[in-house]
């Protein structure tokens, strides 16, 4: 892994300094946080960039804060921190559950929420749980901040709405409302260190026997993690009955277009997507 040693790496001590480095084309570099994705990609053969900027440990990217309506998570917060955070467990339980399924403890200690989102893998473990919150990513550059709804943040396979001089600084994630349920389930080939075949997160509420709110997101079923807007729209006001759930299963399955790859088959993924959505909305 000597090829990595040819890259330059800067260690800015403040966010401002990091954004300065990013602003200037001659000092701009690939942002490296925990390394749990990038170091793997470089080890697996991807050529490392000539310049890297380490943002690990930047204070401005740390911390989980709570305000009235939302939990605000710094981009540099690790999976280990997220899964054990009381506010996350209480207000964003799907996210806490998702963070607990990332790799093993070692990876959870290294990997960050910002890195997981920036890597933009369709199998990124946190994305479904983030998408169902209706929250926002806040990105910063030297000239200021920009807020982007997470549902619009993932543009394509491994691409997010981020300009070369910007970095993700935090996520603003609305708490689930009273009466709203959040659930998460990941299917992998083994119990730990699994990369998902399909994963699903849902936030919904049922009032007087009918669905009142509903957000559903699926990962590993397309080039990006997706919400299911058609299903979500259809289900509002429907009774939480066996007929509705059977229809949910069919509609969810119809709304995704997964592919065959080394982890699973398109057919199974399509089918099980419906099964998972049904299961989560049953709970």
């Amino acid at each position: 892994m000597k090829k990595l040693e040819k890259s330059d790496c800067r260690f800015p001590s403040t966010l401002k300094e990091a954004l300065e480095l990013l602003a200037n084309e001659s000092t701009r570099g690939r942002l490296l946080a925990g390394g749990s994705d990038l170091m793997v990609q470089w080890a697996a053969g991807m050529e490392p960039p000539p310049r890297v900027i380490s943002i690990k440990g930047l204070k401005e990217l740390q911390g989980i804060k709570e305000d009235d309506g939302a939990v605000v998570i710094g981009a540099g917060v690790t999976h280990a921190h997220i899964r054990s955070s009381k506010p996350v467990q209480k207000h964003l339980p799907a996210l806490a559950a998702a963070a607990a399924t990332v790799g093993g403890p070692q990876i959870q200690a290294l990997g960050t929420i910002g890195g997981n989102v920036a890597n933009a893998s369709p199998a990124g473990d946190l994305a479904p749980a983030l998408l169902i919150t209706g929250g926002e990513a806040v990105v910063a550059s030297r000239t200021g901040e920009r807020t982007i709804p997470l549902t619009k943040f993932f543009l394509a396979y491994r691409r997010i709405d981020l300009k070369p001089d910007e970095m993700i600084v935090r996520f603003v994630l609305p708490k689930r409302a009273a009466g709203e349920i959040e659930v998460f389930r990941k299917l992998g080939t083994r119990a730990a260190q699994a990369i998902s075949k399909v994963m699903c997160a849902a936030r919904f509420s049922v009032k007087a026997g009918s669905f009142e709110t509903c957000a559903v997101a699926l990962g590993s079923v397309g080039p990006t993690t997706v919400r299911l807007p058609k299903l979500e729209e259809w289900i509002i006001g429907k009774s939480a009955s066996e007929e509705t759930l059977a229809e949910v299963e069919k509609r969810a399955s119809d709304e995704v277009s997964p592919i065959d790859d080394i982890r699973s088959t398109a057919e199974y993924r399509k089918w099980v997507s419906g099964r998972l959505v049904r299961f989560l909305l049953e709970s």
């Binding site: 790496c9 260690f11 490296l32 170091m39 793997v40 890297v52 380490s54 070692q106």
Partner: peptide, 13 residues
Amino acid sequence: GVPVTSCLVAAGQ
């Protein structure tokens, strides 16, 4: 005290 896989850690970090 925190376990990490040292193959994924850039020592400078």
